[in-house]
Write a protein that binds this DNA or RNA. Structure first.
Length: 548
RNA sequence: GCCCUCGUAGUUCAAUGGAUAGAACUGCGCUCUUCUAAGGCGUUAAUGUAGGUUCGAUUCCUACCGAGGGCACCA
């Protein structure tokens, strides 16, 4: 950034001090300029000059900076920079003409594998999977928009006790016609309350692994395929396309081999094979049970190896709920010793859990809310509004609005915190919401369409005094880069909300197609706004319908 | 007991060590003869407690209080 560099160089002339890094930020209030620095406040004491006086000296030494219209000293000693109209008009022009407006190249050439969603065949698609999907997809897109070559991975548990429970329930005719998620619920309950059933399920579990029973094989194969197909339908609605699918059935043996090959890393304890995490300030975890079965820890080691063999990557990210944070640290500590090269590329991103406002725990069918039922409820609710819209396909629009509503709720807050999900709030589709952003985008599209009809051709005019809307639009690329650097979609969500609010407010005051000579410029600006919202929504993984 | 997250308006969330701590929902009052009122405008209301570091702390450090999660054969 030229401003930061100039500031850094000239501050020495002004105060005879050297600074390694100058703070330069976007003031929250646009009145305070496009950029602002607090260096004078920071170094006033060291130099022995009052902050404002030092700021004045620095400003005097700065001279002219390309693209900056004026520099002011304000408040206690802040140095505020106001960009020149031409520099801001350039941002509008870029946003109006460039498809990739807002992208950056900070990760160019980097290969990144992102694993997320991770549902289990034979079980329901839970809220947690929905959260992991929304966050993982958005992080993948943020990295992509920053120039990285991103591959999406999904790791699913297709073997284990949960599978046996569902298969047993079907085999014994305990469920008929229900979903595989229902079968799991029935099997799980029987496992906990019925001794005979428990024994049978354990047997089924062994048979699933050994594939020794043809009836069980048939139920298993049918169920696995149906579950995976069903998940695919959900991914289609959610807008995710995975490049790689990994299954626990592939990672178990691999993991066991790795553990057995490293007796110096793992030790035996009470018949089980464990990793003593205490040596790394963590806790002990079991990798192989006393029955010789691999636990999830071991499977994760196998998964890491399998990922590295399947595709090349510089970084491998796994997105999970926060409850697995400590677990992951132990696995990573063990991995550093078993697969050091892979371990050095592994990163874990965790998110909070979704909780529900009291008394709103059940779905429309009266059951516990799953990720799927939540989505279906929202689609239903959105249909009423969609039917009154201008959309050609109301059902398709209802789906897009529902996805926006739910993803926005997840992506609007810092990912470390739990999310209190209030259905009423999400279903209202108003205010601080995904549909609000979509609506602003649809409005911008409508103006573009009308401009075309009237034959008004967009043309940016660098001499027009820039509005707050333009100055905020100029910050978009930096907002993307900032969010990508922190792997925090909510930082972009916040920017987009504020940007959309600014646009809506501007829209209420300004008539774009008023037949005046300023129309072409305003049409260009509206198109720049449209692309900013479109690209921003794309990064969040939220569809941007052109008509609502 | 130890470890990890986290405590901000009545509620759900923001705030890159900076300027008057921002929104949304709720309440009340305006606003469609003008490009979409899923919109806009106005109005009340908050940093858990006690110290520390700093020119400046919601943010960093320490202690306490409170919430959620994790801590051996589940995933």
């Amino acid at each position: 950034m030229t401003i930061a560099n100039t500031l850094k160089q000239k501050i020495a002339d002004a105060a005879s001090i050297s600074v390694e890094e100058v703070s330069l930020e976007h003031p929250a209030d646009l009145k305070n300029g496009d950029y602002s620095s607090g260096v004078a406040l920071q170094y006033a004491k060291q130099v022995g000059v009052a902050p404002r006086a030092l700021a004045e000296k620095i400003v005097a030494a700065l001279g002219t900076i390309a693209g900056v219209a004026r520099v002011e000293v304000a408040g206690a000693g802040f140095i505020n920079f106001y960009l020149a109209p031409a520099a801001l008009a350039e941002a509008v022009e870029t946003a109006h003409t460039e498809d990739m407006w807002g992208s950056n190249v900070t990760l160019a050439g980097k290969k990144i594998l992102v694993e997320y969603t991770d549902p289990n065949p034979f079980k329901e698609f839970h809220i947690g999977h929905l959260m992991s999907n929304a966050i993982g997809e958005s992080i993948a897109r943020l990295l992509q928009f920053s120039g990285a070559e991103v591959k999406r991975a999904n790791y699913q548990g297709d073997v284990g006790p949960h599978v046996a429970k569902a298969v047993w329930a079907v085999k014994t005719g305990k469920v008929a016609g229900g979903s595989w998620g229902d079968a799991y619920i029935v099997g799980n309950k029987a496992y906990e309350t019925d001794e005979v059933a428990k024994k049978e399920i354990d047997e089924v579990n062994a048979q699933v692994y050994s594939r020794s029973d043809s009836l069980i094989n048939s139920i298993y194969d049918t169920g696995r395929e149906a579950s995976l197909k069903h998940f695919e339908d959900l991914y289609e609605i959610l807008g995710t396309k995975f490049d790689h699918y990994f299954f626990e059935s592939e990672t178990a043996q691999r993991g066991l081999k790795l553990v057995r090959a490293h007796p110096e890393v793992f030790e035996e304890s009470d018949g089980a094979v464990v990793y003593k995490g205490e040596q790394d300030g963590l806790h002990t975890r079991v990798f192989v049970t006393s029955k010789g079965l691999p636990t999830y820890e071991t499977k994760d080691l196998g998964l890491a190896e399998l990922k590295a063999e399947t595709c090349e990557f510089d970084t491998s990210i796994t997105v999970t709920a926060h409850e697995q944070s400590d677990y992951f640290k132990v696995v990573l500590a063990a991995m550093k010793k078993v697969l050091p090269e892979v371990a050095s590329k592994v990163q874990h991103i965790s998110h909070g859990m979704m909780r529900f406002a009291e008394g709103k725990m059940s779905s429309r069918t009266g059951n516990v809310i799953t990720g799927e039922s939540l989505l279906l409820d929202l689609i239903d609710a959105a249909k009423i509004r969609a039917a009154e819209s201008r959309a050609d396909d109301a059902d398709a629009l209802a789906q897009q609005i529902a996805v926006a509503a739910i993803k926005y709720q997840i992506l609007k807050q810092a990912s470390g915190k739990d999310i209190i999900f209030d259905r009423e709030r999400a279903l209202s589709l108003e205010g601080d919401s995904g549909p609000y952003l979509q609506y602003a985008h649809a409005r911008a599209c409508a103006i573009g369409e009308k401009a075309k009809e009237q034959g008004v051709v967009a043309a940016t005019d660098a001499s027009v005094e820039p509005s707050d809307l333009v100055r905020f639009l100029h910050r978009f690329p930096e907002a993307v880069e900032y969010a990508a650097a922190h792997r925090e979609p909510h930082l972009l969500t916040n920017y987009l909300l504020e940007f959309a609010a600014l646009f809506n407010s501007w829209y209420a005051q300004v008539q774009v197609l008023d037949g005046s000579t300023s129309s072409p410029h305003k049409v260009a600006l509206v198109d720049a706004v449209r692309r900013t919202l479109k690209n921003g929504l794309w990064i969040l993984g939220i569809p941007a319908p052109e008509r609502m």
